[in-house]
């Protein structure tokens, strides 16, 4: 916009051929005016466009729905359920003893995205994470008993072959990070609120 102000000045200068140039002081004042007008016009335009852009961000009602309560009491050992939170699947698995041991025994140096199992769970038997592959957003397999669980006994994303372990950590494949842990809290022993 400031550029437009300058162009305005230049082009105006072109049309101004019939007259000798105004005094230097007049020129400066005029350029300042053009610059000021162009600058304010630019600021105004950006300020006017921002609401249009921001209107595409999540609205207040969408943000307000960002918590889901889940009753875990029907879930048994070795069973997984999938619930929806913010339109995405959340994997909830009640892990068996061997799964927990396996997850805790992993050498952190072997992990592409090193993270202890303890850092990923609040209670060892409950693994709660977003079921969205960190590669390109597919939903990994492994929730249902017959699903492929990948080479590490956790989850397997069929889109591009990412393998996750029993803690939902990436072990092999193109995904860059572990499956994300959503914010959640236990409001009772078997009741959580996600979000």
């Amino acid at each position: 916009m400031a550029a437009i102000g300058r162009t305005l000045g230049e082009l105006k200068g072109m049309t101004d051929t019939a007259r000798p140039a105004h005094g230097a002081e007049g020129e400066t004042r005029r350029d300042f005016l053009y610059l000021l007008a162009g600058g304010m016009g630019a600021v105004g335009t950006v300020a006017a466009v921002w609401p249009l852009v921001d209107s595409m961000n999540p609205a207040a009602d969408v943000l307000a729905l960002a918590s889901t309560e889940v009753d875990l009491s029907p879930v048994e050992d070795g069973m997984s359920i999938t619930v929806t939170w913010r339109g995405n699947p959340v994997f909830i698995r009640k892990r068996t003893g061997p799964e927990i041991e396996e997850a805790q025994a992993v050498n952190l140096a072997d992990l592409p995205d090193p993270e202890t199992d303890a850092a990923r769970v609040q209670k060892p038997e409950w693994l709660i994470m977003l079921g969205v592959c960190t590669h390109l957003g597919c939903v990994p397999k492994g929730q249902k008993p017959g699903d492929p669980k990948g080479e590490f006994g956790g989850w397997f994303c069929p889109c591009h072959g990412s393998h996750y372990d029993t803690s939902g950590r990436i072990r092999k494949g193109p995904a860059p990070t572990n499956l994300e842990i959503p914010p959640y809290e236990f409001i009772e022993d078997t009741m959580i609120r996600i979000g």
Binding site: L52, S55, A60, V62
Partner: peptide, 13 residues
């Protein structure tokens, strides 16, 4: 009404 109440700057637009 959702535009008027919940959408960012929806009332303005």
């Amino acid at each position: 009404e959702r535009i008027m109440r919940d959408v960012n700057y929806g009332w303005l637009i």
